[in-house]
Design a protein around this nucleic acid. Structure first.
Lengths: 244, 244
DNA sequence: GAGTGGTCTAGACCACGAG
DNA sequence: TCGTGGTCTAGACCACTCA
């Protein structure tokens, strides 16, 4: 109940949390600079930055390099809806940028997709934005074998992906999503505009069709300061017996 | 493709990763002390610790305070199975410790459980261990209203929870799990034996029965260096239409 | 260019674990 | 007790944003 030796960063984070919830620091407002805060709390800059990292990971504060630390207007919105009923990241008011690449399966990817090495794949590299702030980085891998290449290989537009998903969905048998937390790769940190010390929610999603083939594998990275994932399971009387 | 200025910690993490995957650092083996590694890579201790934090978040390295850094024998096992078909954290070879408390709903908890403030709750504080290493910290909240108190209120044993779950499961209509990543609270860091700079996978699980009442709400914290969560959705022909 | 956060240094001192 | 990791300091220097 009582922290014997509350660390400096916890004490500072608690104090700032209080300031925010009390409304003395308003939503959207900029905090004093880290140097000023460090001076105010009489700690070194690394310690103060650690305190801010706590608030960041709670989604209370947003850091913008070169500008400052800002109180978030709202707590993180749901960015990812699990369960495979949706193609992945879905939200109104989201822009998506997509980049399509053709490549060949290698070690980890080949295993994930259950295809032999060197077999052709299509990669869709998607970044979703909400209000110019990136909310997810997705790498979607689709084997080019099971589907005629001209059906989707030539289309790099988001509509192509949606159409493809719509075509394949009736054949889906199972969607498995593995969720973990880890620090971002340098690329992820750059694209998502987050500090390399802020964890990402990492989701590996594998969709399997009724023939047991892997239809699609997705590697997702969500910045933990502004995104979370929700999985909803409905227990209808029929579905209740589908799980072991 | 090429990192213009690879940060020191990334370079060191990459090197150590290579050492591990090449087998020069074997599973279970202790790494040189942080001071030795810092000297070897000619960096300061904080920088070296940052590099180790990367490997930790990938589950490659386990830190034990007072002993050293160790190469993990295996990558993290699945600790949490989502979907509500299981009561929560389940794994063979897991020990569970449970602590039961009676309390009254307050702000956040009351809202989560959709009960009025001050209504009585039972809290089950569960810690699961695998091989003496804690793998999850769960706080399960159950309203005491809808179920006769003597059915479960008096039982603080794990069997009580399982029995209760079995009783209530047929009535379940929906299970919703919100997953996010954040830094641990001091208590969580202590119980899970992790550094306060290592993120936890935070899962909030709400189970609703067919009457729309919240049967149970669970706040789960999983150490991101040794746990992940898996959600599996089966698409049977009947179930395919259950989602909007 | 001025001000902001990002990374890193070279230490200090405390807390924990094993002998 | 001694070696380990955990926390923190008081700076330095670089990178980014905005006027």
């Amino acid at each position: 109940m009582i922290q014997p030796v509350p660390s400096r960063r916890q004490a500072i984070a608690d104090d700032l949390r209080k300031e925010i919830s009390a409304g003395r620091l308003k939503a959207g407002e900029r905090l004093p600079s880290e140097a000023q805060l460090a001076a105010h709390y009489k700690v070194s800059t690394p310690t103060l930055r650690n305190a801010l990292a706590l608030l960041q990971s709670e989604g209370l504060v947003e850091k913008i390099h070169g500008s400052g630390n800002f109180v978030r207007h709202h707590l993180p919105r749901v960015t990812y809806l699990g369960g495979g009923a949706t193609p992945g990241v879905i939200n109104e008011a989201h822009q998506v940028s997509v980049h399509t690449t053709h490549l060949r399966a290698q070690g980890y990817l080949a295993a994930l997709l259950k295809v032999s090495p060197h077999s052709p794949l299509t990669e869709f590299l998607c970044v979703t934005y909400e209000d110019k702030s990136p909310h997810s980085l997705a790498r979607i891998y689709v084997p080019r074998d099971p589907v005629p290449a001209d059906t989707l290989g030539g289309s790099s537009l988001p509509e192509g992906i949606v159409a493809q998903q719509a075509t394949l969905r009736p054949l889906l048998a199972e969607v498995q999503e593995k969720v973990s937390a880890r620090l971002p790769t340098p690329d992820e940190a750059k694209v998502l505009r987050i500090s390399s010390t802020l964890a990402v929610l990492s989701i590996t999603r594998v969709a399997t069709d009724i023939a047991g083939r892997v239809v699609e594998a997705t590697l997702l990275a969500l910045p933990s300061d502004r995104a979370d994932a929700v999985f909803t399971t409905h227990h209808t009387s029929e579905a209740r017996s589908t799980k072991g």
